[in-house]
Design a protein around this nucleic acid. Structure first.
Lengths: 206, 206
DNA sequence: ATATTTACTGACTCACCAGTCAGTAAGGTC
DNA sequence: GACCTTACTGACTGGTGAGTCAGTAAATAT
């Protein structure tokens, strides 16, 4: 018993609109993007957009939520259930995840969070609860296990799991800001960082 | 023969205004800051501000230029003329510089560059020429010397001197975005990163 | 004193755009 | 077919703020 076609639109609209908004924000940023343009890209009138989203800010939040959540959820789930060694996990699924961030459309959202964050404290709070603190917790657990198992030695990475993520943020922003001046080989950059870290905290020689 | 008092104002005005603008941008960001408010903070009328700066965007550029240049110039000069070993330099003057970035008023400018950069390509170009590419060149030279002298082994840091700077950007942004959620001990964070890097690329054991 | 130049003011304009709402038409129901 | 409901439209408004400019007052020149 599928929904009648008429109502199907209603269900799809929000996703269609947030997708259009992501594109628009990617090109112009939040402030410079006209609501009307988002509507146009979604093939919809401005009025309809306001039926689904109360304000422009509301739309912005919905964009972040709908694109960031699914990705991060998958990674965290992955960390928590893996039975690989920490090094294998970091060099495998984690590296793969880290590498695609600077290339995927969400890279724009990272920049927008930095740019607009201070103006939207409740969005930052949500992002913290749903993304950052969970990711940090998962990474800390992973590191803890590895240290306890004698795989890694005790190091600052246990206290600051952010050290694993640092080059991801860096290259995500670099490629957006200095696109014209210099392109960074983000794959190798991120892997190089991981190599150096593992070199420093691993137990084995060379 | 000093300038008459009357003309002194004229010389000081731009600096007074850019200082006021830095404060205002720090609190509200670029778009949300009203030109009139900058004028007010500088104790000046809006009209006068437009005598010294053609547009709001022009003012923004002047702010970046006047606050970023002097700092980076000093660091680069320092790298080029030092006779310390690379490790001593990195643990000394470089670390000191890196640590104060997330605490100084310029941290706001870093965020604004990320936020507004894509909208101001000519500003990015200037920033690249005057700051980033020069800093990278200086760091690369430093690393090259150290490798040639047998102090460090050949590593990805030679190709990607950005790896040295990564946690500076990270903590500069982190403290601004997640101020309320979690405070990061940026001093220890940045030093921890440096320790790990040096551990990985140093020649000596332990 | 008078004239001239220079730093400065602030009321005004004009374009812009987030958000509204009266109206339309397509879809469903009886 | 008549009637109701629901998704949708787009012209309009009200607030806003960047940038202007005619005018003032203080400093300097003659």
């Amino acid at each position: 018993m599928g929904k009648p076609r008429f109502q199907r639109r209603k269900e799809d609209r929000p996703a269609e609109i947030t997708a259009a908004a992501l594109d628009a924000f990617a090109e112009k940023g939040f402030d410079a993007t006209r609501v009307e343009e988002v509507a146009q890209r979604a093939g919809v009138s401005k009025g309809l957009l306001y039926l689904y989203f109360k304000t422009k800010e509301d739309l912005f939040k919905a964009v972040i939520r709908s694109f960031v959540s699914p990705r991060i959820d998958a990674l965290i789930e992955n960390i928590e259930t893996t039975d690989q060694s920490a090094e294998a996990f970091l060099r495998g699924p984690f590296l793969q995840f880290a590498r695609q961030v600077p290339k995927s459309p969400v890279r724009v959202l990272v920049r927008l969070m930095v740019a607009e964050g201070p103006k939207h404290p409740d969005l930052v709070a949500w992002y913290w609860d749903n993304v950052v603190s969970r990711a940090m917790h998962a990474l800390r657990t992973l590191m803890r296990r590895a240290v306890d198992a004698g795989e890694f030695r005790e190091s600052a990475v246990n206290e600051f799991p952010q050290l694993l993520v640092t080059p991801v943020l860096f290259s995500t922003l670099w490629t957006q800001v200095f696109k014209r001046q210099s392109d960074l080989d983000t794959d190798r950059f991120i892997e190089a960082h991981l190599d150096l870290l593992l070199e420093a905290i691993g137990r084995s020689e060379t």
